[in-house]
Nucleic acid binder design. Structure first.
Length: 463
RNA sequence: CGGGGCGUAGCGCAGCCUGGUAGCGCGACGGCUUUGGGUGCCGUAGGCCGUGGGUUCGAAUCCCGCCGCCCCGACCA
């Protein structure tokens, strides 16, 4: 993309409403614009990051054997009356009445809908196990939205639901989710720690939250620093293997890691003192096993191999996709702007032309651009008639992890400059070498283009 | 929902106390400056002063209502 043709309304000054780094930087980098309290439009670059995060979530869910679908944002109140949550949920649920006077609501979550779908179509143990998920906009009418997309009222979230015949199978589903989540966050460049947590209003007996350490986090957490050394890395996981998944879960749940709700000083005291840490953290996901809490009242039953009808065992699992955009920035920025991890960056590499209009510089930039695109990468070429300082400041602000700087001075010696946003280190090399280096850096992150459900289907509409 | 605060140009703000027909910086636009970290200078455009009512000869300014937004707290992915 050429910056002169893109829509990237960057702000030099910080809008007054932004208090924390991610909110401030998302506004300044032209990623979002507030539409109402806690409700945001996603401008092109913000949208791009959101879709990158979404794509990673989809890929890892599908890898774990979970099945994507899509449920609506607006729901009928009837199902919620059936589960008993219509009254329990309270003022956080946005209630709407349609023209016929029917009670509707903008979904804050989807347990009722998914259970309704399940009971309509599944009746046998032979159809299990089954895990369905979707990524959809949700709405919770927070009393006080704040911190930009970190705590908006409207938010984009992956929520998944597993259906299993018995407790052991359901726990395997729980473990499978934990493993897939670990990989999901790692791919986003995040250290997200699973912590034993409270179940909250969704209800459940077993639950872990995934937390990203950051000073601006809303939760206080306590953990054994040994857990920070754990990585899933490149290991290949067989998601059907119960023992393997359980083993990985054991690995991550053995070191002490709890939120303040479940923190226990007596147990914490057994951790060696130098490794006892506490911090603020941002919650970016949660997994629950809740058994038959919804299947029983809503009659989601299956027949087992002995002909007995039993309520299905369920769990639910969420990842805050829109919130992750903010969380990643909280975890990765400096005083000049955002520093995107390679896995989620909106563009792989910036190209800064220091002398726009100079035939040699223009030509070199065009050549770099073409070479990067041919490698399957997406560069952002700053071809504006701006001074060097302005271009550098913009690049630093929007946080592309790599920048190639092209100017007459370097071109005289046949070199361009490759700069790492995170370290600030620069290296001079030939344009060809720079392209090769960028391609090498992104090789592990280079997955399919944006996930598009049903991309190969065609839809016909008759009007 | 309790407490506090703010709505004036695209953004950041001054003007309000003490009423007299709106200003600064950034940005935008047009020039010159020839340029390796938001360059300097000149010029131009842009405002129903959130909204409704009241007081007054006259309201951004004073009074009342409403709407919106932000901050602290409680609450929450």
């Amino acid at each position: 993309m050429r910056l002169s043709r893109y829509f990237l309304p960057v702000l030099k000054e910080t809008p007054a409403e932004a208090q924390i780094a991610s909110h401030r930087l998302m506004l300044r980098a032209g990623m979002i614009k507030q539409a109402a309290a806690g409700i945001y439009s996603w401008l092109p670059m913000g949208f791009k990051v959101l879709k990158k995060i979404e794509a990673i979530v989809h890929e890892e869910q599908v890898r774990a054997g979970h099945i994507p679908m899509l449920m609506p944002t607006l729901q009928s109140a009837d199902l919620w009356r059936e589960s008993g949550r219509y009254d329990d949920y309270g003022e956080e649920m946005l209630r709407i009445t349609d023209r016929h006077g029917r009670d509707m609501l903008y979904g804050p979550t989807n347990e009722e809908l998914i259970t309704d779908i399940f009971r309509a179509h599944v009746g046998s143990y032979k159809d299990l196990p089954l895990t369905l998920y979707h990524i959809q906009w949700k709405f919770r009418d927070e009393i006080r939205p704040r911190f930009g997309v970190m705590r908006g009222r409207e938010f984009y979230m992956k929520d998944g639901y597993n259906f299993d015949i018995d407790y052991d199978s359901a726990i395997h589903a729980y473990n499978r989710h934990m493993v897939s989540y670990l990989r999901t966050y790692e791919r986003m460049g995040l250290k997200a720690i699973p912590m034993r947590a409270d179940s909250g209003p969704i209800g459940g007996e077993d639950t872990h939250e995934f937390l990203v350490l950051a000073d601006t986090g809303e939760s206080e957490v306590f953990y054994d620093s040994a857990i920070l050394d754990l990585t899933l890395g490149e290991r290949v996981v067989n998601y059907d293997d119960r023992a393997e998944c359980a083993g990985i879960v054991r690995e991550w749940t053995t070191p002490y890691a709890r939120t303040d709700e479940t923190h226990d000083e007596a147990v914490f005291a057994h951790v060696p003192e130098v490794r006892r840490k506490s911090s603020r953290a941002i919650e970016v996901g949660q997994i629950f096993y809740f058994g038959t809490k919804y299947s029983e009242p809503m009659g989601a039953v299956v027949t087992n191999d002995k002909g007995e009808r039993l309520p299905v065992h369920m769990g639910s699992h969420g990842i805050g996709v829109s919130r992750l955009v903010g969380a990643i920035i909280e975890a990765s920025h400096d005083e000049n702007g955002i520093i995107w991890p390679e896995g989620v960056t909106p563009f792989h590499c910036g190209i800064v032309n220091l002398k726009q209009g100079d035939a040699e510089a223009d030509g070199a930039c065009a050549g770099l651009y073409k070479a990067l695109v041919e490698k399957g990468l997406e560069p952002l070429y700053d071809d504006r008639e701006e001074r060097a300082g302005a271009k550098f400041a913009t690049m630093d602000l929007i946080g592309l992890p790599w920048r190639i700087t092209v100017g007459p001075r370097g071109l005289k010696n046949g070199v361009v400059e490759l700069t790492c946003r995170r370290t600030g280190d620069s290296e001079e090399m030939s344009p060809e070498a720079a392209v090769a280096k960028i391609a090498e850096i992104y090789a592990p992150h280079h997955t399919a283009a944006h996930w598009e459900p049903m991309a190969k289907s065609s839809f016909h509409t008759w009007l």
